[in-house]
Design a protein around this nucleic acid. Structure first.
Lengths: 146, 146
DNA sequence: CTTCATTGCTGGCATATGCCAGTAATATTA
DNA sequence: TAATATTACTGGCATATGCCAGCAATGAAG
């Protein structure tokens, strides 16, 4: 892999981690991305689609598509906002909360294995770096926009 | 974003970097992933599909699918191996080499901006970490397989 | 209040990625 | 050598992700 390309390297590592986390969560029937989504929705408490998309740095339309399987399976629901009829808020259903709760054990185990393999501090440092790269500040600095 | 999840954080950063690199390469008509593929094929010199997939940590089938647009657009071709008729080797066409060459300028500029924003040494360190996470050694250590 | 711009979301299309079930070719073994 | 196992790839289906073109609701101007 063109080892100098920051983007290619990041994607490649993403595929690797996606594969091993997917395997770890497989017994739950959830993909790692889906688990991440449920967890994020749980944390944000009925975010608007727009807000959730911004938080996870995902295109709004892509988010809608990604939510579809979770809605179909009854883990997530979209509820219209009371004050602004354009807005849809994302919520976990009871089944969704239960699924999240159950799957958390598998996820925690994957985390443990990651940190045992890679090191607790290195993992925390890596997450901090990734947080930085995911910020709008970074995007602005990179693109050189105001 | 569930800031403790290594996988979610990695994916999120991947989306961000994908977006900004895609923008940077947009004038070429190539996506950042496609550019990375062309560059990797160029480096590996007629790899078998299987070898290329392993190198970039991508499912063989996924790689075949991802190559389709590049084949359709005439940048890449699959040639059967002489000694083993199961094997298909991946090559750049003349147009593919030219496209790679041209797009390299845009890519180099994106790299420059990344490193200016993030720091040369930090970028190199990050790539080293990502290389480690992409290794089969890491996968084995994580999964606890022999 | 009417017009126009902005905002939030949906749908369609395209690429990216993975799993699984074949299929063909090669390698291994009885 | 014939039967079997393994390997390399293809195709179908599903999710993940992004862009663009609407469309409806809200906000800003006049």
């Amino acid at each position: 892999m063109t080892r100098e390309c920051n983007n290619s390297m990041l994607r490649r590592a993403s595929r690797m981690l996606g594969q091993v986390y997917d395997d770890a969560l497989a017994p739950s029937g959830l993909r790692a991305t889906q688990f991440g989504l449920l967890a994020q929705i749980d944390i944000m408490r009925e975010p608007a689609l727009r807000e959730l998309a911004a938080e996870i740095v995902m295109d709004l339309s892509a988010l809608s598509h990604t939510l579809k399987p979770l809605i179909r399976d009854g883990y997530v629901a979209l509820v219209p906002d009371k004050n602004d009829r354009r807005v849809k808020r994302v919520t976990l259903t009871k089944a969704g909360r239960k699924k999240l709760e159950q799957t958390s054990k598998l996820w925690a185990d994957a985390q443990r294995r990651f940190e045992k393999t890679f090191g607790d501090k290195r993992a925390a440092d890596l997450r901090a770096v990734l947080e930085e790269l995911s910020s709008e500040d970074f995007r602005r600095a990179f693109t050189g926009s105001p």
